Deep mutational scan, measured.
Amino acid sequence: TTYKLILNGKTLKGETTTEAVDAETAERVFKEYAKKNGVDGEWTYDDATKTFTSTE
């Protein structure tokens, strides 16, 4: 399943996707990605669109 991440950081904005077996796995991948890029925001998830959003 393809999951999408929308980053709305103070210094980094953008989108990326990952293939994962479930939302929990995708969330771990995306949170590590955000951390590596210095984004520490509030997380939301929309199951209908398989989209995570992190907003600082």
Rank of each mutant, 00 (worst) to 15 (best):
T1I: 14
T1N: 12
T2M: 13
T2D: 03
T2A: 06
Y3E: 02
Y3T: 02
Y3Q: 02
K4V: 09
K4P: 02
L5E: 02
L5I: 03
L5G: 02
I6C: 07
I6T: 04
I6H: 04
L7D: 01
L7V: 07
L7T: 03
N8K: 12
G9S: 08
G9I: 04
T11W: 14
T11F: 14
L12R: 08
L12A: 09
L12V: 14
K13Y: 13
K13I: 10
K13Q: 12
K13N: 09
G14L: 15
G14E: 13
G14F: 15
G14S: 14
E15M: 13
E15D: 05
T16P: 02
T18N: 03
T18E: 04
E19T: 14
E19Y: 15
V21N: 12
V21W: 12
D22E: 04
E24D: 11
T25I: 07
A26P: 00
A26R: 01
E27S: 09
R28I: 10
V29T: 10
V29C: 09
F30W: 02
F30C: 01
E32R: 07
A34R: 03
K35H: 10
K35V: 09
K35I: 12
K36W: 08
K36I: 12
N37D: 03
G38P: 01
G38E: 05
G38N: 09
G38W: 05
V39C: 08
V39Y: 12
D40V: 13
G41W: 15
G41C: 05
E42F: 13
E42S: 11
E42K: 11
T44V: 09
T44F: 10
T44I: 08
Y45N: 00
Y45R: 01
Y45H: 01
Y45M: 01
D46F: 04
D46K: 02
D47L: 08
D47K: 09
D47T: 08
D47W: 08
A48E: 12
A48M: 11
A48T: 12
T49C: 04
T49Y: 04
T49P: 01
T49W: 03
K50D: 01
K50S: 05
K50L: 07
T51E: 03
F52A: 00
F52E: 00
F52S: 00
S54A: 15
T55S: 09
E56R: 04
E56C: 08
